[in-house]
């Protein structure tokens, strides 16, 4: 436990020192929210029960933040650490593997929690959004972000090089965010695209967040969505547990 606390402190410091990562996963979703909100925040979305666009967008942006921080940021950072050999070196010390991994996941979740707080605050102050049921909302975001970190860990085992990592990761999470309606309502998307989106976890995260924050529901009113997200997270955790590598590709 002492080792875990030591590692968590170190990981938080490392995270806060990494400017690229902080921008990519932390600031970018906030900036997107600000930009998109300024463009169409005051519209009403007819296809979505006439809700205010800013409210609608906030849920999408929280989901986008979860996938950017938990999935994209984590996996890029880990692949870089693995390929530079730092993970291999850590394995030669008496630090238990679980302590390293859990500290890293906690760091990621803490970063996302801060980001989500900033996002909700930005919405309140600037776009006059309304967010209900903060407790349920927090649980839903925690669930979503945790599932994405598990998927992010799993993804690292499929990426071969540090150079390729951001290309692969961007090619996955940006289209997924787009398809899942993080940026605007997917109402007018062709059926095929909708079908793809409905197979992916982000749609369920965003819908859950929206139902809670906007339609005044609680997380336990939505067991179906929760189950899909948890199942994706579990699948990611299983792949990660089986395939996670500490050593760089060349051995």
């Amino acid at each position: 436990m002492r080792l875990f606390r030591h590692e968590l402190r170190s990981q938080l410091r490392l995270y806060s020192r990494s400017r690229e990562l902080a921008f990519f996963t932390f600031a970018l979703p906030l900036i997107m929210f600000f930009l998109l909100g300024s463009v169409y925040g005051n519209d009403r979305i007819k296809s979505e029960q006439n809700v205010r666009a800013a409210d609608y967008l906030l849920a999408g942006m929280l989901g986008y933040g979860a996938i950017a921080t938990g999935f994209a940021g984590l996996s890029i950072m880990l692949v870089i650490r693995r390929e530079s050999g730092i993970l291999k070196r850590v394995r030669a010390t008496p630090l238990p593997a679980w302590a390293y991994v859990v500290a890293l996941l906690c760091t990621t979740l803490i970063a996302f929690a801060l980001e989500a707080i900033c996002m909700v605050a930005l919405g309140r102050l600037y776009f006059h959004t309304h967010t209900h049921n903060l407790f349920s909302l927090g649980l839903a975001l925690l669930l979503g972000a945790a599932a994405f970190t598990a998927l992010g860990l799993a993804l690292t085992s499929l990426i071969r090089s540090a150079e390729g990592s951001s290309a692969v990761v961007n090619a996955i999470y940006l289209p997924v965010s787009f398809l899942s309606g993080a940026f605007f309502s997917p109402h007018s998307f062709p059926a095929a695209l909708k079908a793809i989106a409905n197979a992916l976890p982000l749609v369920y995260v965003i819908r859950l967040v929206r139902d809670i924050a906007l339609h005044n529901q609680q997380i336990w009113d939505r067991p179906g969505d929760v189950a899909v997200i948890a199942a994706w997270g579990l699948a990611g955790a299983i792949v990660a547990a089986r395939r996670f590598r500490w050593e760089p590709q060349e051995g």
Partner: peptide, 17 residues
């Protein structure tokens, strides 16, 4: 592991510390 020390053939350190 606590009783051994290792220098690998290629250096690996955290860049930001």
């Amino acid at each position: 592991r606590a009783r051994i020390g290792v220098v690998l053939q290629s250096s690996a350190v955290y860049e930001n510390l």
